[in-house]
């Protein structure tokens, strides 16, 4: 299982401004034995720069897109929903699997997210055990089971 999940060494892009949550997420991935490279960006703008090879990610190959995007909603500069809008609006990232990973369980956030075309919405549980469980299932599904179209890579 581990081997399969690491196959291709695909990048997971985590957009998270809280270092605690970043660390917990790393721990949770580690616990769940998800070995993909975890790239962390601190705000919405940085996330977009990364994805579209702008700003400090100018040198990055746009064709190399992450396998999964974990997106917090409440972010400095450009918030999560804006980032999602930007991703879905661009052909290069249109099919990128995006999972909202947030503390909010606001109905409006949920509706908005799904309207903008999010793939999953997960509330971060307070209980770390539950969090690990959630991350494991997330990894299993999106990195192993799910087949994404390959248009964006070509």
């Amino acid at each position: 299982m581990r081997g399969r999940m690491s196959e291709g060494n695909k990048i997971i892009l985590l957009v998270e401004d809280n270092p605690d949550d970043e660390e917990l997420t790393r721990l949770a991935f580690a616990e769940s034995q998800v070995a993909n490279e975890l790239v962390v960006v601190r705000d919405g703008q940085e996330a977009l720069d990364y994805l579209f090879a702008a700003g400090k990610y100018l040198d990055r190959d746009v064709c190399e897109q992450p396998q999964l995007l974990l997106l917090d909603l409440k972010l400095p500069k450009v918030d999560g929903l804006e980032v999602l809008r930007g991703i879905r609006a661009d052909a290069r990232t249109k099919f990128l699997p995006v999972v909202i990973l947030t503390s909010s369980k606001e109905e409006s956030d949920l509706v908005e997210s799904y309207t903008l075309g999010v793939n999953s919405y997960i509330q971060k549980p307070v209980d770390f055990t539950q969090f690990i469980d959630a991350v494991r299932q997330l990894g299993l599904y999106w990195l192993v089971l799910n087949e994404a179209p390959h248009t964006s890579k070509k």
Binding site: N18, D20, D21, L24, L27, T102, S103, V126, F128
Partner: peptide, 12 residues
């Protein structure tokens, strides 16, 4: 958002 995050840290 803000209250749960630290809790999660504490618990985690």
């Amino acid at each position: 958002h803000d209250l749960r995050a630290p809790l999660r840290s504490i618990d985690g």
